[in-house]
């Protein structure tokens, strides 16, 4: 059939150039990065092959180790906080309240604002406002800037990260809650199921797919944190808040560690793939059980 041939040819003519573009700017640099990870390339000049030494060094390098610790601490705490708070807000925004659409609109605002500028605004808050509040209330822990303390700076970054991430997760939970049919609650009410048990036994099992999406999305976004670190601490104090992305950017682009940080980037890539796959299998299994 003539039309069939035309269809196949058109599809091929569309797909090939687009696929070529994708390979050129995604697959090719990925492979190049992998190749560089076996060299001692500084980003300029000549370089030698060093085999797997970069990968061995990654596991003994204190700075890399600390950046993984910080990034994971940040991502795990951030993901949990974000999901708990946004689920609470979503339940509120989905109940019978006044001004529902206006409130929903307001709670989404942080998501549309850029992370860097928000980071700068919060930086002022942590440096000048919060310590004054802490001093006047006599709270020792808050009376100096969180950002200059090696033990507290990461918390400040968590707060800013959550402030933005909650907006997105709330919207996803709301669309999940809207899929729960009203008659399930009516049936539950007849059996006297209310409050926490109503949430745990009726609502939550039905929105598990959305819980899964939120876990994967926020974990992935938190692991790739860059803007907030750049704006709030630049990795300090004493490299205590250096995220993996920030370390790769900082030392790879201008620190003469192009080869070494390529190995780091590749390890980071594998880490993200493994975590996403594990999370998706767990949520899929949970879904099947129900």
């Amino acid at each position: 059939m003539k039309g069939d041939r035309d269809r196949k040819r058109t599809f091929m003519l569309i797909t090939i150039p687009i696929l070529a573009l994708f390979i050129c700017f995604n697959t090719l640099p990925l492979i190049k990065g992998f190749i560089y990870s076996f060299t001692n390339f500084k980003g300029y000049g000549s370089y030698d092959w060093v085999g797997g030494r970069n990968y061995v060094d990654l596991f003994t390098d204190g700075r890399v180790g600390r950046s993984y610790l910080f990034t994971f601490k940040y991502a795990i705490v951030g993901t949990i906080l974000t999901n708990v708070i946004s689920l609470v807000i979503a339940l509120g925004l989905n109940s019978k309240i006044k001004g529902k659409s206006v409130l929903r609109g307001i709670y989404f605002i942080p998501n549309v604002l850029g992370g860097l500028v928000i980071g700068y605004i919060f930086s002022f808050f942590f440096t000048y406002i919060l310590p004054v509040v802490g001093q006047s209330l006599g709270i020792e822990a808050l009376s100096s800037s969180m950002l200059s303390s090696t033990s507290q700076a990461w918390i400040a970054i968590v707060i800013v990260g959550c402030w933005q991430a909650i907006a997105m997760n709330t919207i996803i939970y709301i669309s999940g809650l809207q899929t729960v049919p009203e008659d399930i609650y009516e049936a539950g009410a007849i059996d006297g199921v209310t409050g926490w048990r109503k949430f745990k036994d009726l609502t939550f099992p039905l929105i598990i797919p959305f819980f899964g999406i939120n876990m994967v999305l926020s974990m992935k976004n938190f692991l790739m944190v860059f803007d907030q670190v750049m704006a709030l601490t630049k990795g300090g104090p004493a490299q205590s808040t250096e995220s993996i992305s920030y370390l790769i950017y900082n030392n790879g682009m201008s620190g003469g560690q192009f080869g070494f940080q390529s190995a780091n980037a590749f390890l980071f890539f594998v880490t993200i793939v493994v975590i996403s796959v594990v999370q998706m299998t767990i949520t899929n299994k949970k879904e099947e059980q129900l």
């Binding site: 700017f25 995604n26 990925l30 190049k32 990065g33 560089y36 790739m224 790769i248 682009m253 980071f268």
Partner: peptide, 15 residues
């Protein structure tokens, strides 16, 4: 979708 920008960054700057 799983490829973080951090890994493409350095080769892409060169490219």
């Amino acid at each position: 979708m799983f490829v973080p920008f951090a890994i493409l960054m350095m080769p892409l700057v060169k490219q």
